[in-house]
């Protein structure tokens, strides 16, 4: 049982990173992007490819590459979509997520295809790993809050409020939005690295677009633009989705019920929010 609680803590931390990255992009900057799963996959596969070829690389070294590749892919999706707004961006980013997943499934020599890549590392002590995950979460949270207080952070908020007006007071909005995408994607890539390390593998099925929707759900639940809220939202969603297993009902309640639940949560939140404003 205690080992299950530790596992829950690890998942909570990894999902929290995804939610924080999403919140920077969507909550702070107002860009409705739906490809956190793809950014996470980039991180996981960067880790897996590096470690499967060079098993003795230090994690810090791998981490740097993960952050870099996450940021590059963030920019890659960022640049062509910088001109898109709202729903259009959402659709384009969903498409990007699908492209990434299909490349992972089919580029066998690099990604191992549907079987994914196994890491030649021994499994971690759960307690230790939990500490590691939450250390990363805390550092990211600190960084994001620092960013929020800086001129950059206020610039991002200004873009969310009114992009044209932000431009008219001299903000280079493409630069800001590109940076938001890069940082958000890098954070998700770190989540992917932790995921791959913990499971000792990277497989494409993990990084489905339903994961991106779930992450959005966490952020909306916690309040757009509120980082602590994202942690709360993540906790609620993780507990709900693991509850059947926690209570030993997993044989009776199929996993797909989760997705129905996320849908219900998302729809009711949106309706509730609209009433408030």
């Amino acid at each position: 049982m205690s080992s299950f609680i530790l596992l829950l803590g690890i998942y909570f931390g990894i999902y929290a990173l995804l939610a924080l990255g999403q919140n920077l992009i969507t909550g702070k900057t107002g860009l409705l992007s739906l490809c956190q799963a793809a950014f996470m996959a980039i991180g996981a596969y960067t880790t897996a490819i590096l470690l499967s070829r060079h098993p003795h690389l230090s994690f810090v070294y791998v981490g740097v590459w993960v952050i870099l590749s996450g940021a590059i892919f963030g920019l890659l999706i960022g640049i062509p979509t910088l001109r898109l707004k709202g729903d259009y961006l959402a659709i384009a980013s969903l498409g990007f997520g699908e492209i990434v997943k299909n490349v992972l499934l089919n580029a066998d020599t690099l990604t191992g295809g549907p079987m994914g890549i196994s890491l030649p590392i021994k499994s971690f002590d759960k307690g230790l790993f939990l500490g590691m995950v939450w250390l990363v979460v805390c550092l990211v949270l600190l960084g994001l809050i620092q960013l929020q207080r800086s001129h950059w952070g206020r610039g991002l908020e200004a873009i969310r409020e009114d992009e044209l007006a932000a431009q008219s007071v001299g903000l280079n909005t493409p630069l800001y939005k590109g940076a938001a995408f890069m940082i958000g994607a890098a954070i998700s890539a770190m989540a992917g690295m932790l995921w791959a390390l913990y499971h000792g593998s990277a497989i494409p099925q993990t990084f489905d677009s339903t994961l991106s929707i779930m992450v959005l759900c966490m952020v909306v639940l916690g309040g757009l633009g509120n980082y602590y809220g994202s942690l709360f939202g993540t906790m609620v969603i993780v507990v709900i989705s693991e509850l059947p297993r926690l209570l030993g009902f997993s044989a009776i309640i199929p996993a797909a019920v989760n997705q129905i639940l996320f849908g219900i949560i998302l729809v009711s939140l949106v309706i509730l929010r609209q009433k408030k404003s």
Binding site: E157, A158, E161, D162, A165, A166, S168
Partner: peptide, 8 residues
Amino acid sequence: NLRLFKEM
């Protein structure tokens, strides 16, 4: 039409 940063 006013374009303020409304929530700020």
